[in-house]
Amino acid sequence: MNTLLEVSGVSVTFDGFRAINNLSFQIGDAELRAVIGPNGAGKTTFMDIVTGKTRPDEGRVIWGDKSQSLLKMNEAKIAQAGIGRKFQKPTVFEDQTVQENLLIALKKPRGWLSVLMYRPSTADLEKTANLAQEIGLLDALSRKSGELSHGQKQWLEIGMLLAQEPRLLLVDEPAAGMTPQEREHTTDLLLEAAKTRAVVVVEHDMEFVRRLNCKVTVLHEGSVLAEGSLDHVTSNQNVIDVYLGR
């Protein structure tokens, strides 16, 4: 299996607190991976590093077939290279319609001149309609996204990420605050997405992770504690200690 993203030996310190400690992590093409860990394990910081928001003190982050280092790129460049990120809280552009939200995200040239001159083609509109169908928001296309429910916003954000056509999708707690039915839909979306690209899901909820049925990485105190199938890691004594307390 090809390695898409390789993080090796990365450490970050905030004011003396080691948020990430010598972390190494790999993910291949079209792989679904869940990252779990207790609060403060460094899950979000890990995403921050991959997406360029936080610069690590040491270590390497290598991306793609050409083995580019992501550390020299800014957030926008990393996103253009094919890494999409979903925040913990749903962040969509509330003052704009669902369609406008999807159109912004659509994979198109990101330069300001081409954006200024851009007028949506029929194909683009069709594409947004398809995406809206997929995330269950076809009826809401012309509604302001601020009017959507919490779960719908989460889906819209996933839809925006899909419109971006990334090769790696980083999803931070997508199921938080969702009803069971909504969770199911979210699981389906992620499983579908993982067929064509790599997806990393950060999640607290074991039930949700179980339903994803994928390889699991357990983070603790900024480094990898265990890796493997969910059953494998949940039977690991270290993991039990960390989760249930010593």
Binding site: T51, K53, N74, E75, A76, K77, A79, Q80, G84, R85, F87, T91, V92, F93, E94, D95, Q96, E100, L103, I104, A105, R110, G111, W112, V115, L116, Y118, R119, P120, M160, Q164
Partner: peptide
């Protein structure tokens, strides 16, 4: 147009626009 969408996006949520691959600073 779309530029309007992007700058409204910057107004409402700069980080989201940035992670969508737009160079917020340039805009």
């Amino acid at each position: 147009g779309k530029l309007g969408s992007v700058i409204l996006g910057i107004r409402d949520n700069e980080a989201r626009v940035r992670f969508l691959g737009y160079s917020v600073e340039t805009y």
